[in-house]
Amino acid sequence: MDKYEEFMALTSQAIGILKDMSKRSPYDMASDGMARKTAKNFTQLADVLFGPTDSPRLQRESVALAEDRGLSLEYLEMVEKHAKKLQKRDVRLGRVVDGLRTISITDTQRRITDLEKTLDAAVENDNDRPRSEALLEPFWDLVESTGTGLIRPEYRTVIAIGLDDFAKVSCGKGEDVVVALSDGTTMTGAEFINAAMEGSLGDKLYVGLFHPTAGPVNLYEARFASDKLRTLAMAENLVCPWPDCNVPADRCQVHHIDAHKHGGYTKPSNLTMLCKYHNGVNDDDGPRKKRKRPSPGKPKRGRMRRHRGKVRLHTPGGKLVENTHHVSSMGAMDLI
């Protein structure tokens, strides 16, 4: 068998290849020489076929069928790409870029067209601006006039600000100060002061104490994280710290870095925020020796680990990778 024949034989083993990829991190695969984008595409496809799912029976049948027919990686990628487009109705919220954010709505043609006509009626005589710009204000008018409109609660969101910057802002000298929030956005020092003046920051101010290498400092012990512990964890990680994740801490779950079931304490240095998905795939177990304080073992999919004070992903290949989201680098541990 020559190299071409070996290659063709390998293409029919896509399911086996993806099964092995499902146990690896895209960052380790990239370090082995695979393009990072390609590695992410393959691990995402592996997640579809072997990761958590609401339809395990359908997943098993799909894997068996693909394996029986010897489908290639390229073919499986094409099927997944087109499957995503079929009758998918949803609302997607994009990442913040230069202070702007995008919302995308996919629904039936009738509902979207009726919305379009409603907005058009409000801009019938506005010919000075492009239509896409003219539709924006009528859209928000429509949203805010229906029912209770937009929800504007008192801030439960954590605002991470260093002591020096807080002093500047408090003295009215923080025009250039930019602080990050656990909803994945940022605000200027002026916006911070305005929010405080309007009472939207609430009537209480909480101060978190962080050590440069140990992380958040506290001595409380409990099974579930209290509001205070959750707030400290959010202040440290304003978005899910898993690399490339953009879910803000407001929508994350409190995660024990050393699993509670294996003796991990509920204390600030052992807590972080993870989105529901990454909290589920984080490898809490791994090989463990029978002793009083089990060894963390080698991660499979990867697990969160605190290293030199900061929470990072410990990949199966032993690399420590941090999230590069712009708000992720503005948390409490980055302010000291």
Score class of each variant (00 low, 15 high):
residue 1 M to S: 15
residue 9 A to R: 06
residue 11 T to E: 15
residue 11 T to G: 05
residue 11 T to L: 10
residue 20 D to G: 02
residue 21 M to Q: 04
residue 23 K to H: 10
residue 28 D to I: 00
residue 37 K to Y: 08
residue 44 Q to F: 08
residue 46 A to Q: 03
residue 53 T to V: 05
residue 61 E to D: 14
residue 64 A to D: 13
residue 69 R to M: 14
residue 69 R to I: 11
residue 70 G to L: 05
residue 72 S to I: 07
residue 76 L to Q: 09
residue 80 E to K: 11
residue 81 K to E: 13
residue 84 K to E: 14
residue 94 G to L: 12
residue 94 G to M: 09
residue 106 T to N: 14
residue 107 D to F: 04
residue 110 R to F: 10
residue 122 A to W: 01
residue 124 E to W: 09
residue 127 N to C: 07
residue 130 P to I: 06
residue 133 E to Y: 15
residue 137 E to M: 13
residue 143 V to G: 01
residue 149 G to C: 04
residue 150 L to I: 14
residue 154 E to V: 13
residue 170 S to L: 13
residue 172 G to R: 06
residue 172 G to S: 05
residue 178 V to L: 07
residue 185 T to P: 02
residue 189 G to Q: 05
residue 210 F to V: 08
residue 218 N to H: 10
residue 221 E to M: 10
residue 222 A to C: 09
residue 229 L to A: 08
residue 236 E to A: 11
residue 257 I to E: 00
residue 262 H to W: 10
residue 266 T to W: 00
residue 273 M to Q: 06
residue 275 C to S: 09
residue 293 R to N: 14
residue 294 P to A: 05
residue 297 G to K: 01
residue 299 P to A: 07
residue 305 R to F: 04
residue 313 L to H: 03
residue 314 H to G: 01
residue 317 G to M: 01
residue 327 V to H: 02
residue 327 V to T: 06
residue 329 S to H: 08
